[in-house]
Design a protein around this nucleic acid. Structure first.
Lengths: 360, 360
DNA sequence: CATTAAAATGTTAGCGCTATCATTTATTCC
DNA sequence: GGAATAAATGATAGCGCTAACATTTTAATG
C-alpha cells in the first residue's frame, strides 16, 4: 500500500487579482476520491501525460519510464476512468449490440463471439434488448447513443425508419447482422434467408417429401425464409403449404402447439420446416407425445444448429448458421473502422449449410 | 431542422498578454462535432446549466423554460453525452452484471428482469461474462470498474479473494445473487442451495424412490445442492448416491452422456436429480432413446424451472427459482443505494418451491 | 409596500483524462 | 563536432457536462 502524500491541492485562483486571493476558497473541489492518473504520475515521478502514454501508447515511452509507471499503477491500485478517457478522446472503447432478446438462444453464439473478439481488441460489449416488438426501441437507442459507443451491432433487428435516421445521424459505425438486406445502412454481415428457405424446400423435395408444412415465428427474417420456402415448393409442383405462425421468441411449448394445430387440420403432412431449432424440438416432443414417429411419419427440419441440435432424439437435421463467424466479422468491421483502417468490403455473405442428421 | 448559427468559438487567450494574442491560435479546438447541451441552451435562450436541469431535475425549472428546452432538444436532435455527465456527477447510470456465461439459460430471467427494472429507473445494464473458470475475471473486473458503474451485480459467481478486494476497494455497491453465502460482501439476494438439495432428497424419498442418483454440473452452487442432497439421503437411510459430474455450462448432450454413464454402472437407479433443467431434458431424451420410461423406470428431477420445463414429455418436476424476483430485488438494492436511500435489510432470501409435474 | 423567503436562473470551475502543441534529450550523419 | 533528426517528455487547454455557490426574479407575509 502506498500513501499518496503530496496530493497537491493548489488553488488556481492564486494567479488572479489579490483581492479575491484573500477571501476564503469559493468552492471546494469535488474529487470523487479515487486514485487518478495524476496520482500515479506523481508516484512514478513523471507528468500525467507521460503516465497516460505509458498506458495507451507504451511504445513511445522509454522502457524504464514504462516500468516506473506500471509499477506505480500496481502499487496504487489505479484503475483508469474510462468515462474521462472516452470524453477526452471521443473513443469510448464501448461497442453496443442490439438483440431482440437474450432469451432466444439464436443470437447467443454471435453475442459471445462479439464479446470475445472485442475484448481481445480492448473493447467492451454493451448489450441492449429491444424486444421483438420494437416498441421501446427509440428510448433504447437514445440510451445507447448517449454512451457514445464506438460502434453498434444490430442483430436480427428491423429498425424503424426513425431509428435508422437517428443511428445514421449519430455518425457511429453500424454493423447489421444475420440478414442480407439489399440496402444496408453501413456495414453488413449475414446470409440470405431466401436462399435458406429455397434450399430447405429443395432438400425435402429431394428426400421424397411431398406434403410439406411449416411452423414459423412471426419475425421478419423467418417470414423471408417462409416465403422462399413456399415459392420454391410451388415451383416444384408441391401443394399449398399449411403454416402455423407462432409469436417470437420461439419456445418448446409453441413448437408443440404448432404441430398440434397443424396435425388437427392436416394429418397427412410428411415434413415440417421449423423456423428455429427450439421450435423443432417442440415439434419432435409433441410427435413423441402423440406416438408419432420422426422421421417415419414425418420429417422435422430445424434452423440454427443450436448446441443441442445434435443431441435430440432423433438428432435434428437443420440449417447451420455460423453465428460465431458472424460475431467475429462484425467485431472486425467495427474495430477496423474505429482504428482508421479501410473497410473495402462492407457487405459479407457468410452463407449457410445444411446439417443432415436423423430427423428427416 | 435547425441551424446552429452562432456557435461561439471564442478564443480564451484573448485576455492574456498582447504578444501571444497576435500569434496564430496555438491549438485548434477538438470538438467532436456533435450537438451539445450548450447548443441546445443557446437555441432555447437559456444557460447551459438550466438546460441541464431541465433534463435532470425538471421540477426545479419553470414550466415554460422546460418546454423551451425540450423543444430545442427535439429540434436539434440532441442526445446527452453520458460520458461527460457521468464524469461530472460521478453517476454513470450504468450497472454491470457479471454472469459466468450468457449461454446458460439459468440466469437469463434474472438478467432480463435486471435490465427492465434498471431501465425503468433510468439505468442501463452492462453485461460481463466471466466464464465459469474465473480465469479472465480480473481483467474483466478492471474493464468494468473502469466504466465506473453505479453498481455491480454478481450472478452465480464465486469471486477470487483478489477480485473481492478490488471490488470492495472500488467502493461500488455490490449485490451478490443466486446464493446465500454466510459472508456477503455487501448486499445479497438469493436462496439456500443446501435447503434445495435437502428438499429434493426428501421429496424423492417421500415418493418412494430409494435408489437415488445425481447428474450435476461442477460449479460451486450445484456442489452445494449435491452435498445437501447426499447428506439428507444418508440421514434418511438411503444408500450411497452414484453421481455423474459434468462441466458447466450444462447441455442437453451432457445430460444424455450423464445418464448413460450412470446407467452403465448402476442400472437399478430409480430417480435422478439433475443440477439444471437442461440436464434433465438430456436425461429424459436419453431415457427415451434407450426405451426407458420416465417416470416409470426412474424419475427425473430438474432445477430452475426454465421456460420449457412444463412442455417436455413428460413434463418436468423441478425446483422453481424466481429469477425475475431476484433480478428485481437486485435492481432495487442498487437503485436505492445510489439514490441515497437506506437499505436496512441487506440480505434477502427469496426461497424456492418445488413444482410437481409428471417426471417423478 | 417594504421585507423575507422561496423559486428560478446564472457564473464559475472542475470531473479525469488526452489532443495539441512545445520543449528537452538522445541519436544520426556528413 | 556541430547541424539536423528523432525520441522522449512536458505544459496547457478542453472534451461536455454538473456541483457549488451567486444572483436575480417571483411569491408570500405582516
Amino acid at each position: 500500500m502506498v500513501a499518496i502524500t503530496s496530493r497537491l491541492r493548489y488553488d488556481s485562483r492564486m494567479n488572479k487579482t489579490d483581492s479575491t486571493a484573500v477571501t476564503s476558497p469559493r468552492r471546494a473541489r469535488r474529487s470523487s476520491g479515487g486514485i487518478t492518473l495524476t496520482d500515479v504520475a506523481k508516484v512514478a515521478g513523471v507528468s500525467a501525460i507521460t503516465a497516460s502514454r505509458a498506458l495507451n501508447m507504451p511504445s513511445v515511452v522509454s522502457p524504464e519510464t514504462l516500468k516506473r509507471v506500471l509499477d506505480a499503477i500496481t502499487r496504487t491500485g489505479y484503475v483508469p476512468n474510462m468515462l474521462a478517457g472516452g470524453l477526452a478522446s471521443s473513443r469510448s472503447r464501448l461497442v453496443a449490440a442490439l438483440v431482440p432478446t437474450i432469451a432466444g438462444p439464436v443470437f447467443l453464439e454471435t453475442v459471445q463471439a462479439l464479446t470475445e473478439a472485442l475484448a481481445e481488441s480492448g473493447y467492451q460489449l454493451m448489450l441492449g434488448q429491444s424486444g421483438y416488438t420494437g416498441q421501446r426501441e427509440d428510448a433504447l437507442l437514445d440510451a445507447i447513443i448517449g454512451r457514445r459507443p464506438d460502434g453498434i451491432v444490430l442483430t436480427g433487428i428491423m429498425h424503424s425508419a426513425e431509428g435508422r435516421r437517428r443511428l445514421l445521424a449519430s455518425g457511429i459505425p453500424v454493423v447489421e447482422t444475420w440478414d442480407l438486406t439489399p440496402t444496408p445502412m453501413d456495414m453488413l454481415v449475414g446470409f440470405s434467408h431466401e436462399k435458406v428457405g429455397a434450399a430447405v424446400a429443395e432438400y425435402l423435395h429431394g428426400k421424397g417429401r411431398r406434403r410439406l408444412a411449416i411452423v414459423t415465428a412471426d419475425d421478419h427474417r423467418a417470414s423471408l425464409r417462409r416465403q422462399a420456402f413456399e415459392a420454391t415448393a410451388a415451383r416444384l409442383g408441391l401443394p399449398r403449404i399449411p403454416a402455423c405462425v407462432v409469436p417470437a421468441p420461439t419456445t418448446l411449448g409453441s413448437g408443440r402447439a404448432g404441430l398440434s394445430q397443424l396435425l388437427d387440420k392436416h394429418p397427412d403432412i410428411d415434413a415440417v420446416f421449423c423456423s428455429s431449432d427450439v421450435l423443432a424440438l417442440g415439434v419432435i416432443t409433441e410427435a413423441q407425445a402423440r406416438g408419432k414417429s420422426v422421421p417415419g411419419d414425418f420429417g422435422v427440419f430445424g434452423f440454427g444448429d443450436l448446441g443441442f441440435a445434435g443431441d435430440t432424439h432423433p438428432a435434428l437435421t437443420t440449417v447451420r448458421i455460423d453465428g460465431t463467424a458472424i460475431g467475429y466479422q462484425a467485431a472486425r468491421f467495427i474495430v477496423d473502422r474505429v482504428e482508421g483502417r479501410e473497410v473495402p468490403q462492407r457487405v459479407v455473405d457468410l452463407g449457410f449449410s445444411i446439417v443432415e442428421r436423423d430427423s428427416v
